[in-house]
């Protein structure tokens, strides 16, 4: 029992389950799933479908954070990839053609991959702090997206594109399959190969890893490429959802929600040990919370207030200080600061 409680996914899972339970009690329809024309519908299904862009971005972010980095540019990359895809479809003679849409998607995701590689180059090769390196693209990216769409919101009518976000496959939303494929891909790459442990090694101690012969540069560069590529796919899903390329609104604040999802899932922002399952749960918590807020009749514009409290709650739960205070209040003995690991000194105590 206590071993379960100490597992690092314990709190995230409990929070998600609690959130779903509260919703189910408050509105039984929340857990109802109806079948229409062989396709499943319901609030839970919506959560799974709508979470696809955030899921992709958060998975990429997890890998980047594990290398001790951060990718602030994901929202801008989404905007660019959406703009590229829609501009190609809009410019083609047959926007409804599956081939056209496929070409548009492949090109836009490739563009996103290149943008990710650019971030990776700045961080891994030029060794610029990740926050600033990705800030460059975060600032410039939306500008580029606006230039691609000529400053307008490009809209198209294209059934194949609409299918990406709104279509169904085997009764389930197609976007869900994209999410699951991304999760599976990342999990296989990181945990079935040695990439995961090497990524953690680089994130915990880059110099020691280099001297041990780990290809740190390649690993860091790869992380940003993954993040960029996934953000590109997320950008396509987003544009498919609204059937438009909106350079300003696409992926707005998504970098912050993605970071929040990673942190909710128990991965530390200081890099190193990471949890893919944790991130998946973190994304679902955020999406369920969004749904709850909407249900409460709160305007979605006001929802950031809730997230502010979520962030505060989460960091308080994770803070050692709170445990100390709690222990003292429950009659525990006076505390000691743990022997601190000072820079470069052995913990001789």
């Amino acid at each position: 029992m206590t071993r379960w409680m100490r597992h690092r996914l314990f709190l995230p899972v409990v929070s998600l389950v609690a959130l779903i339970l509260v919703n189910a009690i408050a509105r039984p329809r929340f857990v109802q799933i109806t079948v229409r024309d062989g396709e499943l519908y319901g609030a839970l299904i919506d959560i799974l479908r709508n979470s696809a862009p955030l899921m992709l971005v958060a998975l990429g972010m997890t890998v980047v954070i594990a290398t001790r980095g951060i990718d602030l540019s994901v929202g801008a990359v989404m905007a660019v990839s959406g703009a590229v895809a829609l501009t190609i479809i809009d410019g083609s003679s047959d926007p409804g053609n599956v081939g056209t849409v496929l070409v548009a998607i492949v090109v836009s995701v490739l563009v996103a991959l290149v943008l990710g590689a650019w971030n990776g180059f700045l961080v891994a090769v030029l060794e610029i702090q990740p926050i600033i390196a990705t800030l460059v693209l975060m600032l410039a990216g939306r500008g580029v997206a606006l230039l691609i769409t000529d400053g307008f919101i490009t809209t198209v009518t294209s059934p194949p594109l609409k299918y990406v976000a709104s279509g169904h496959l085997l009764g389930l939303p197609f976007a869900l399959f994209i999410s699951v494929a991304a999760i599976a891909l990342i999990a296989l790459m990181e945990r079935r190969t040695a990439l995961g442990v090497l990524t953690e090694a680089v994130g915990i101690n880059p110099e020691a890893s280099r001297l041990t012969g780990v290809r740190s540069r390649g690993i860091i560069l790869g992380a940003y490429v993954v993040s960029g590529t996934f953000a590109g796919v997320a950008g396509v899903i987003y544009s498919s959802n609204i059937m438009a390329a909106d350079a300003n609104a696409a992926g707005e604040l998504i970098e912050l929600y993605a970071i929040l999802a990673v942190v909710l899932g128990g991965t530390s922002l200081t890099g190193g040990k990471f949890s893919i399952a944790g991130t998946v749960i973190g994304v679902l918590i955020i999406q369920t919370l969004q749904s709850t807020i909407l249900f409460l009749g709160v305007s979605s514009a006001e929802s950031p207030v809730f997230f502010a409290f979520v962030v505060i709650l989460v960091v308080l739960i994770q803070s050692p200080r709170v445990y100390q205070v709690a222990r003292r209040m429950t009659g525990g003995r006076r505390h000691h600061p743990a022997p601190e690991v000072t820079t470069g000194v052995e913990v001789t105590s």
Binding site: E200, A201, I204, N205, E207, A208, S209, L211, G272
Partner: peptide, 11 residues
């Protein structure tokens, strides 16, 4: 520099 260039402390 065992700590900064050797051991991966969290592994």
């Amino acid at each position: 520099n065992r700590r900064s260039e050797g051991i991966i402390a969290d592994l």
